[in-house]
Design a binder for these strands. Structure first.
Lengths: 251, 251
DNA sequence: TTGCGCTTTTTGTCTGAGTTATGGTTTCGC
DNA sequence: GCGAAACCATAACTCAGACAAAAAGCGCAA
């Protein structure tokens, strides 16, 4: 009976060298954020679940602890483990965000994410312009050069893009902004990959970034804010928002 | 031998009806965010740790999973469990934030948090003014009345304050903003309690909130933004930023 | 009706064993 | 002497099965 079978579908559904508990958490997490398990619903008991998955109860329990730590579920004796209401989910947790983007994120979600970026990143850039050190500038410069060299068509280029944003936000000197944007940039990275696959290279993104960089170099807060706002606006334009507006009563 | 002794100091350090694993996670988490365990440092092994705490290995492991889910630690075979660099921490996770505020948060942390609020909440209020429904207005109105009745001196009043903000942000229609601010308001709630204990009732906060509410009612986005900005500014003034200020190096 | 206590279900905790990943070391080949 | 491949020791990881505790729901009695 212990067939070692891939009851967890280890291979087909993402692969990040996760441990067993991590894989279980990811699978369950994806099902929750995708709506396959809905808020209020109680999962079946630990024994049933772990048997179905052919894993030990402890591995399953650790997975549930992970989900609970991210606000996706709560569990209590006698009632079981139930999916939490959406407003309790840690939507900006990098893992949760990744699980959302692994599926088919609803257009409104994408919209909301860009809306948040529009609020945060221009202001963060303005702060960065005021507080950046030479080290930050060096890091941004290097990332920018790497971006130009590789382009977003290859992984190296996308990593450089990420690095640029990370360095910029780190220069803002606000740890909360850094933490916040970590997850967002990761999601955007995944999105860029997808975007790139759909229709490659519409416009060279380097000049946009260059403008932000220049403003930060000259400590021009207002310029950095404006440049970043423009950068995000263009990025949104390049993002394929699937099926739009048509009545959109998705839920 | 199983003395059931309070090796975890269940009583003295916070009490929220947590399970054993939750209590362990909280204790370790506090030690990490407070700097008592520093990034890069490896904790001692599962067996040693669980023995020291007089808990089973599974309970300890589940605690570590929680911390790992919040980005505070990572663990791998042969190396052990080590504290992650700060930029990987989920600083906006409500639990992490609570752990930070349970200790003696550094003034810069407080400053950074208010800086983030200053970026987010005015814009969120502006969005809310445009998107709010009658239901949101009703909720805000009720919270406002409760706030006036109870004042921030009692728990009921502080809860009403929280409810007001939660309702307002929910009206923004952006789930990420809601998620983001959940943790922040919780932290601020804790802070308000502390603040209240230090020096009670400096100024009636209801008028500030009333102005925001009025702007949202009349769908005046710009007015809501301004009123909220002012509200946060006043809240910051009322917040006891310990030591500092001499020299006015506010950053 | 209402409150108290019992029952039963489900998660929580414990113990102890075997498994697997992996950093460090050693050996082998050149 | 030096680099790569095999080895080894050590940690987390996974498993199994038992017992403990919490709590929702029910029944009983005042």
């Amino acid at each position: 009976m212990n067939k070692k079978s891939g009851a967890l579908s280890d291979e087909k559904s993402g692969n990040k060298a996760l441990r067993l508990h991590g894989a279980i958490a990811r699978n369950l997490g994806r099902r929750i954020v995708s709506g396959r398990y809905r808020p209020g619903q109680v999962l079946e008991g630990e024994i049933e679940s772990s048997e179905q998955l052919n894993v030990s109860r402890s591995a399953y329990r650790e997975a549930v602890r992970i989900l609970a730590a991210k606000g996706l579920v709560t569990s209590r004796p006698r009632v079981g483990t139930r999916v939490s209401p959406r407003h309790e989910w840690r939507l900006l947790d990098p893992d949760v965000l990744a699980w959302i983007f692994d599926g088919e994120p609803e257009p409104e979600i994408l919209q909301s994410l860009f809306e948040l970026r529009t609020l945060i990143e221009p202001e963060a850039a303005a702060l960065a312009a005021k507080r950046r050190t030479q080290g930050h500038l060096d890091g941004m410069r290097a990332a920018l050069d790497a971006m130009r060299e590789h382009t977003l068509a290859v992984e190296a280029g996308r990593v450089a893009d990420q690095t640029f944003h990370a360095e910029l936000l780190s220069a803002s000197g606000n740890p909360f902004i850094v933490s916040l944007t970590n997850g967002v940039t990761a999601a955007v990275h995944a999105l860029t990959e997808f975007k790139q696959r759909a229709r490659p290279l519409r416009r060279d993104p380097v000049p946009d970034h260059e403008r932000v960089y220049e403003a930060v170099v000259t400590k021009d807060a207002e310029g950095a804010r404006t440049a970043m706002r423009e950068l995000i606006r263009l990025a949104l334009l390049d993002t394929p928002i699937r099926r739009r507006s048509a009545k959109g009563k998705k839920r």
